[in-house]
Amino acid sequence: MPIQPLYILSALLLSIGLVIVIVKRNAIMVLMGIELMLNAANINLIAFNQKVPMSVDGQIFSLFVMIIAVCETAVGLAIILQVYRHYQTSIPDEVNELKG
């Protein structure tokens, strides 16, 4: 498979993930944007690994990225649940107790 379309797709997913993280007013949506950005990195790792013979370094790195992403989602959702219990909202802008 050609790799140039893959890294264009990766750039697109990274930009969309960044826009979601900046723009959306919902904590779970922000987590989804972070997942999209991590997947963009994974696509690059797999695409370049495909062209290097006798090596699976890219695939192993993408596995570690996936594991870290799962851990990050679990802890992030636990924090969002606790914030929701305490403030009755999952919108980051409304959690402003420390705002001067």
Binding site: S15, V19, R25
Partner: peptide
């Protein structure tokens, strides 16, 4: 739950600039 947007112009500017 409806999703609201904030700072749409700046976000789209940063995202398309990065892309």
């Amino acid at each position: 739950i409806p999703i609201k947007n904030t700072g749409l112009f700046g976000g789209l500017l940063v995202g398309s600039g990065l892309f």
